[in-house]
């Protein structure tokens, strides 16, 4: 029985904008198990990034975490609700026990400091090293870990002297500098070329194995999911549509949205006669559709879907779906 490292329970995040309340995340619950790579998949605006940021209260105004619990089970057996911690306490966890890697390597590094300084700083903040100088020394090892050639010299480089792939390696380096228990990678390869993407994914897998860390991978690319994750959470319009292992999701998708999504992606290794597209557009989250949020685009929608919100049900072991058909 795998033990969870994070339990998200009924998480709600709303954005209070001038246009109205954007219900970015509504009643999201799922677990992240120790040592796994969990992929959070969905289209633009489905709330996958917001979910990942809400874990450590990284939601900025006008957003607010309205309700819910994020239970974090530490290695020593103690449990904390991350949403109840104050600024000081959560900052100790963020970047230390739970680290982030963001999408755009070009903007997530400060152009004014050397990469060594930035890695050193991340360690110094969390008291892993006494001062920045020691941190820069340790940074050489970290750059070696993330497979940057010639780390002794690279440590003194400024971000603009590195290529996109190298920068993303540095960002990953900052992420793993404090040996985190959970690594949250938010679209880590979207800004990169395919060949570089393959290298970065390989690196993340490698590091995960080595440190026995848990990875939460946020992506819209189903190919990346199939190649790196063990379990998948499919999100649609701020709600969880389906949860399952990759084999369950890819070979036996249950939610009509998952089915449609899989049919819309061209697989370069298969012969595709016709891609299937999903009619309509993603709903506006200020006034989301009543009942199941997917019903206006769903080919199987019936009266019940328009009225009742479907519960997340376990159909087979580990395979959950929120749909009235099951």
């Amino acid at each position: 029985m795998p033990e969870p490292i994070i339990e998200i329970k009924n998480l709600r995040v709303y954005f209070y904008t001038y246009a109205g309340v954007v219900k970015a995340i509504e009643d999201v619950s799922f677990n992240i198990y120790r040592g796994e790579t969990l992929a959070l998949v969905g289209e633009t605006g489905c709330g996958k990034s917001v979910t990942s940021r809400a874990l450590t209260q990284l939601i900025e105004s006008p957003g607010r975490i309205v309700s819910g619990q994020v239970l974090y089970h530490r290695d020593d057996g103690s449990t904390v609700d991350l949403l109840k911690l104050n600024d000081e306490e959560i900052r100790e966890i963020r970047g230390n026990e739970i680290a982030y890697i963001f999408q755009d390597p070009h903007s997530s590094l400060d152009p004014l400091y050397t990469v060594g300084y930035q890695i050193g700083e991340a360690m110094e903040v969390h008291g892993k090293v006494k001062n920045i100088k020691e941190g820069i020394g340790r940074a050489v090892n970290i750059l070696r870990e993330v497979l940057i050639p010639d780390p002794e010299n690279r440590v003194r480089n400024y971000p603009h002297e590195l290529s996109g792939g190298m920068k993303q390696r540095v960002v990953i380096g900052i992420g793993i500098a404090n040996n985190p228990r959970l690594l949250i990678a938010d679209e880590p390869t979207t800004a990169l070329d395919v060949t570089v993407q393959a290298q970065i994914l390989e690196l993340i897998n490698e590091l995960k194995r080595k440190y026995n860390a848990t990875v939460l991978l946020i992506t819209h690319n189903l190919g990346v999911v199939a190649e790196t994750a063990q379990r998948v959470v499919v999100m649609y319009a701020g709600k969880v549509a389906e949860i399952g292992s990759i084999d369950q999701i890819f070979h036996n998708p249950l939610h009509p949205y998952t089915v449609a999504l899989l049919r819309a992606v061209p697989n370069p290794l298969k012969k595709i006669e016709k891609l299937e597209s999903i009619p309509g557009t993603v709903p506006n989250l200020i006034t989301p559709p009543k009942g199941c949020r997917f019903h206006p685009r769903c080919p199987f929608a019936e009266e019940r879907c328009r009225k009742e919100v479907p519960e997340l049900k376990e159909i087979e072991p580990g395979h959950w779906v929120a749909c009235h058909r099951y």
Partner: peptide, 12 residues
């Protein structure tokens, strides 16, 4: 071709 992620775990 070997670098592109394939949206099918078995083929991958």
């Amino acid at each position: 071709l070997s670098a592109i992620p394939i949206p099918d775990p078995e083929l991958a």
